[in-house]
Design a protein around this nucleic acid. Structure first.
Lengths: 137, 137
DNA sequence: CTGCATCCGACTCGATACTG
DNA sequence: CAGTATCGAGTCGGATGCAG
């Protein structure tokens, strides 16, 4: 059966990201996506306002941050608290689930960052091999 | 100072995904991207051929898998071994760095999958609140 | 079998402008 | 400050066709 593909990865969970129509795939993408991961990481343990968040994530546009925040809020990872005062003040912070998720995410990010020298070296090797092939052709 | 942003996340690493021009951002995207994460997870501890990999990842196109594999190979996460025999046989497997990365990634995936019921519930709540607002308007 | 090249539509993203 | 609406450029991604 196609829907049992997850077994080949040996997880035995009720959902499987490996299946095309699995809902966890969407959530995983919100979490790991370009802005999702950065947003979660930038929130961390803090309670942060919209523009502060925007400043923390270098390069994110208003639109993308807003969009990302909505997706994460919808998935129950981020809590949004709006005060209808003037000036408006909206604060975002991680839910418990969001913190758990972010913890794992940061483990991953830290690993990747810590190993970047290896990655960069691998890239050079790869590129050298490839340009050599192209150049010699 | 802008380049110290990473400190606000308390990691103190030499790279910071939060900075726009940080090379780790690209690698992180390869790893966590739509197909990258699934490819790494599908490789696991195995040595897998191209089409077998394609079968494991439900919905991936040839093009995307090939592209993803190249990116991961370039980053030193995946090892590619091509036998120039006939028929051609190309095997992919994770490097040590790839396995480390995948381990973290699977921690994250498992968490997300395990908590999907919560996510789904949060979505319903969110959607209900939103459609209510829209409907009542 | 394992791929690369090309075409082309769909969707994403970012800049801008505008609202409360 | 905290967004939403719109629009155009760019990228993603799938289908097809071809090559070793």
């Amino acid at each position: 059966m196609d829907t049992r593909r997850s077994d080949s990865q040996g997880d035995g969970l009720p959902f499987s990201v490996f299946a095309r129509d699995c809902p966890s795939r969407g959530t995983l993408e919100h979490v790991t996506g370009r802005w999702g991961s950065l947003t979660l990481g930038a929130l961390g343990e803090d309670t942060v306002r919209f523009n502060e968040l925007r400043r923390r994530i270098d390069g994110v546009s208003e639109k993308m941050l807003s969009q990302t925040l909505h997706a994460l809020e919808r998935d129950g990872l981020v809590h949004r608290e709006a005060q209808t005062t003037n000036p408006p003040r909206v604060e975002y912070r991680l839910t418990e689930l969001g913190r758990e998720t972010t913890r794992r995410l940061l483990d991953l990010i830290r690993l990747v960052e810590g190993r970047m020298p290896e990655v960069l070296a691998a890239r050079e090797t790869y590129d050298a091999a490839h340009t050599a092939r192209t150049a010699s052709a």
